[in-house]
Design a protein around this nucleic acid. Structure first.
Lengths: 227, 227
DNA sequence: TTTTAATTTTAGATTCATCTAAAAATTTGT
DNA sequence: ACAAATTTTTAGATGAATCTAAAATTAAAA
């Protein structure tokens, strides 16, 4: 594959379009959404998507936004694969904390060498998930489905395993750290406040905590003995 | 330090100027020498060194070449430190061969994060030399002197330890591999041909080999029981 | 269904890094 | 020491990535 032929900037646009598609699950991605995500001007985005359209990375209809082609999606998944593998490296090997790795991985994801990624993947033990619980696409772009749901969708008292976050802000991750809530930790739902949809939970069979509805929506879990 | 404020390209020029200074040990580095090393045009180099001069990275006198300032030298050493640490990572951790790592390290050296380099250095066990035997500058730019000499400067039959190369071409490194000549291997000089200055040596007390004067000049050794 | 608001595109500039061709300065050779 | 050769710089262009301001198009609202 050797993602050459695409500049850093082009790669960033491709990834941004992919992520917006993922989040909004709309058919097309708007110029403004891309501009917002990349902290750039709509005019700049228009120029870039024209170039990406010429390179058959996106389909583009004036005034109606863009959509990644199969080729574009493959490139996006390849960048995401690299990003998440590097995050695993930074956390598991270099002892970075999970809230510190994003910016560095954002740089490392642009390093261009297929052989490097093969060897890095092996070195890390071919991980399927990154330190935040996000699935790592394999070399063909396939992702193992995490099979997780937001804690906020749990409606009865039961045990769950914390397996990912739906918010990657450093401040949120640090908050979870302060509760000693790590990926793999058991969360037992003790009660749900039907008024504000907040949760009272027990973490690791130890301390009790309260989660607002918002926080509960950011905590991804797998129900245990789920019925 | 956080080498920000310098583009990839600027960093490449700074490193190139440093290396040319190192090789030629002349006071100033010429426009053409930089152009040759970076496979670019002299006119392009003139533009860039003007910018570097404005940023106080080099001293520049029209028509008389450039010289790195203390600031420029510090930046160059920082880039070289990163390059060599990454090479250690690639060879020692990812099992790349020593002839395969240059281009990848050339990309990785531009990753910008002081914390990353501190942690990488620790992870690698604070190595003092890279896989080719080149000294790794410490965080202050200090390098441990390798104390090595080219095999071609050895004038009598004696044992030496192979500790580095003065030529980093993949083909040369592969040639040494084919002789099972690795860093640390003992080379015993059996005879020196006074006509063409070629060497007959025994490697690791096993096979005998012949080295032309040219090859001998590329093999760096530390004499054993040196007198 | 028009008018208004929001979004998107075009037009014209700027900066970085690069090029070629031509001019200027330095170095070399006789 | 002067002409020839080499090196270096200037001048003018180009492409990538960005900006602002204005024009065009689409979407929303009265």
């Amino acid at each position: 594959m050797e993602n050459s032929g695409f500049t850093h900037t082009e790669q960033n646009y491709i990834k941004a379009i992919f992520k917006i598609q993922e989040i909004t699950s709309k058919k097309t991605v708007s110029t403004n959404d891309i501009a917002d995500r990349l902290f750039t001007q709509p005019a700049t985005v228009t120029d870039m998507i024209k170039r990406l359209a010429e390179k058959k990375i996106v389909t583009y209809k004036k005034y109606y936004g863009v959509h990644l082609t199969a080729k574009g999606e493959k490139i996006a998944l390849d960048i995401i694969r690299k990003h998440r593998l590097w995050e695993v490296f930074l956390v598991n090997k270099l002892n970075f904390k999970w809230d510190e790795v994003h910016d560095i991985a954002e740089q490392l994801e642009h390093i261009n060498s297929d052989e490097l990624i093969v060897k890095l993947d092996d070195f890390l033990g071919n991980p399927k998930f990154d330190p935040h619980g996000d699935a790592i696409p394999d070399k063909h772009g396939k992702m193992s489905s995490a099979d997780s749901v937001p804690l906020s969708s749990i409606t009865k008292k039961q045990s769950c395993v914390f397996c990912g976050v739906a918010n990657h802000e450093a401040r949120f991750l640090q908050y979870l750290d302060s509760l000693k809530l790590n990926i793999g930790t058991t969360i037992h739902v003790e009660s749900i406040n039907s008024f504000d949809s907040s949760y009272k939970v027990k973490i690791n069979k130890k301390q009790s905590e309260f989660f607002s509805a918002q926080i509960a929506s950011y905590i991804l879990v797998q129900p245990v003995n789920g019925k």
